[in-house]
Design a protein around this nucleic acid. Structure first.
Length: 595
RNA sequence: GGGGCCGUAGCUCAAUUGGUUAGAGUACCGGACUGUCGAUCCGGGGGUUGCGGGUUCAAGUCCCGUCGGCCUCGCCA
């Protein structure tokens, strides 16, 4: 091979005592500088670490003068000898802290404007500034680690599926709009006047067609787009690990993904996960945790106290039960002294966000309860409550009385908050499980119709198929969510491959044959040509990276994320476009005039 | 679409509850210093208090609107 010009011989993270005496060249960014008039110290940074370069006037006056002009984020190349640091000058904080590079020459590769903030700062600037200057933000070790981890996770996933016979097949980014589900991002067509492509919400239909085509083990690292409002764990543009298999049943998918998660956690954390991952029914977790994505890192399960509530003298409880509602609670172990009245008021406001009109609380004492509303509960009822919740002196009991859905939402979120505040779990733990047997459909009160809980191609549990017409809400779906640390980290189902069953489900969802043909005709057509039984799942890659980082902000694991208003502050997207472009596409803008 | 928090030197924050010249640390500029690593020491420059309006003798502070960021309900098959 031709000898190429090498700008560096080592990175800033690799020099150690055993390199002492070697002549090396390192490149990087000035992380910090200390000018002693004589000696100049530069902490040089690249993505591998920090190395201290020392410039001594005795090694060259010109070089030393140049070194004195170096400022933060300047890009330099330094050549010199690796030397052992004098005794007592070792920096324990950096991995290369036992050595220096004693420079003999210095090349200023590029200057930098004064950066808006320094990558090494401990006082992180607000996120708006970080996003505008993402090229600086991305120099921070935390973000560099996150993106490196993201790479490792993606590689581990690709390797796993490759080793298990899966094919990575790409599906279109420009597709056909299917109006149900999330809002589509649209792309106008120049060639087809007045027509639009849609960016995929997921490759769902294409991967099913791949099954029909015979690619019985498919996977893809697929970019997906949904024009819905953002959250801390939701971006409009995100990445799914998309998987589909033919000639399989539910447990085959679960088994394959069990293996994937074990592999991932082993590769990334070096921790062995015991398999199979626990499985819970939807009904079970809703009752015990009030959520279909419970955080299983800690207990504090919800408890039904409807029986006691119906008998007590506390009107709110009694009337709720009388009105068909529920009274449920949980026990914050040992929290009685940790939560003042003011803090409990905050918790009351917090559960209010989920529709709860109040939050009853009791401090557990020896054989009785202390609370402003304790007087409405007889000694017998107080003891019964304590027993039901496993109360011990010092515990703090909370109760919500409302419609079932409100008690679930309020208590599930209260549970998460208390779990975090009381530090009931290790934030770095990865605790994954399956939630299965979701209902197939749910009643949409606004639209007065049944909506698919997962999607319209999801196979009902076989024994429940007769209930499709009589009791749709009792029909379970052959669907499954992969839940991790309280996040939905994956979701999938066995698909319908039988046109008759598909038609029955469409009927239930109020999708006529005509409409179905118009919307998904190409899938239905494919299913008529020898579709094998098939099933699949999609995992949220961004969320998995976030979980592996122990972070709760999805933007921290995406190189160039968007703000809550779906803007890219770095590039300025979205933006207006030239009139000429619009004209070519026959598009007229009709935005209300500003007043 | 709704609720909440935030916006003051490049950056992180302060400003005695409406009071007279808006401060500190850091960064930046100049100087001193041959073992620092949050270097130190001396000196200096730097402000449309997001923007617009209002109340008031007086507004960073109070009110209204607006823009932007974050959290959240709805939404996300």
């Amino acid at each position: 091979m031709e000898k190429t010009i090498v700008l560096r011989t080592h990175t800033c993270g690799e020099l150690r005592l055993e390199n002492v005496g070697e002549s090396v060249t390192v490149c990087g960014w000035v992380d910090s500088w200390r000018d002693h008039g004589g000696l100049v110290f530069i902490d040089l940074r690249d993505r591998y670490g920090l190395t201290q370069v020392v410039f001594n006037p005795d090694e060259g006056a010109e070089m030393h003068e140049l070194a004195r002009t170096l400022r933060n984020e300047f890009v330099i190349q330094a050549t010199g000898q690796v030397v052992k640091r004098p005794d007592g000058m070792i920096n324990e904080d950096i991995e290369t802290g036992t050595i220096d590079v004693k420079a003999t020459s210095l090349e200023l590769l590029n200057k930098s404007l004064t950066p808006p903030f320094e990558p090494g700062t401990s006082d992180l600037p607000n996120e708006e500034l970080r996003l505008k200057h993402r090229f600086v933000d991305l120099r921070r070790p935390t973000l560099q680690k996150a993106l490196i981890l993201r790479h490792e996770i993606t590689k581990s996933i690709r390797d796993y599926f490759d080793e298990n016979g899966f094919l990575d097949i790409e599906t279109p980014i420009m597709g056909r709009s299917t109006p149900e589900g999330a809002r589509d991002y649209l792309v106008p067509s120049r060639v087809h006047e007045g027509c639009f492509y849609a960016l995929p919400q997921s490759p769902q239909i294409f991967k099913q067609i791949l099954m029909v085509a015979g690619f019985d083990r498919y996977m893809q690292v697929a970019r997906c787009f949904r024009d819905e409002d953002l959250r801390a764990d939701r971006q409009p543009e995100f990445t799914q690990i998309d998987v589909e298999m033919a000639f399989v049943e539910r447990d085959d998918i679960l088994g394959v993904i069990d293996g994937l998660i074990a592999r991932l956690v082993k590769d990334v954390r070096g921790v062995n996960v015991s398999l199979p991952l626990p499985r819970f029914t939807h009904a079970d977790v809703m009752e015990r945790f009030g959520s279909d994505k419970p955080d299983m890192r800690f207990d504090m399960e919800l408890v039904d106290v409807g029986g006691i509530a119906a008998e007590c003298d506390f009107g709110v409880f009694k009337n709720t039960i009388g009105g068909g509602g529920r009274v449920r609670g949980l026990n914050a172990k040992g929290a009685a002294e940790k939560y003042s009245r003011k803090m409990i008021d905050e918790l009351t406001a917090y559960v209010g966000e989920y529709g709860a009109k109040g939050l009853a609380f009791f401090r557990v004492q020896e054989g009785k309860l202390d609370s402003p509303i304790a007087k409405f509960f007889s000694e017998e009822h107080q003891k019964a409550l304590i027993e039901k919740l496993g109360g011990e002196p010092g515990d703090l009991l909370f109760f919500v009385a409302d419609k079932e859905a409100v008690t679930s939402a309020a208590l599930a979120n209260l549970r998460n908050r208390l779990g975090k505040e009381l530090e009931l779990y290790d934030p770095m733990e990865i605790n994954a499980c399956w939630v299965i047997d979701f209902p197939l459909v749910s009643w949409n009160e606004d639209e007065q119709r049944w909506d698919a809980e997962h999607h319209p191609f999801c196979y009902p549990v076989n024994e429940d198929i007769p209930l499709l017409e009589s009791d749709p809400d009792k029909v379970r779906a052959q669907s499954y969510d992969l839940v991790c640390n309280g996040y939905e980290a994956g979701s999938g189902s066995v698909r319908i491959h039988d046109p008759a069953v598909q038609q029955t489900v469409f009927d239930l969802l109020g999708i006529s044959a005509d409409e179905a043909e118009r919307r998904f005709g190409f899938l239905l057509e494919a299913l008529r040509y020898g579709a094998p039984p098939h099933a699949g799942i999609a995992l949220g890659l961004d969320r998995w990276v976030m979980l592996m980082c122990g972070d709760d902000n999805i933007r921290d694991v995406i190189a160039f994320p968007k703000t809550q208003k779906a803007a890219d502050l770095l590039s300025g997207a979205p933006s207006t476009v030239d009139e000429r472009q619009l004209k070519e596409l026959h598009i007229k803008i009709d935005v209300p005039e500003e007043t």
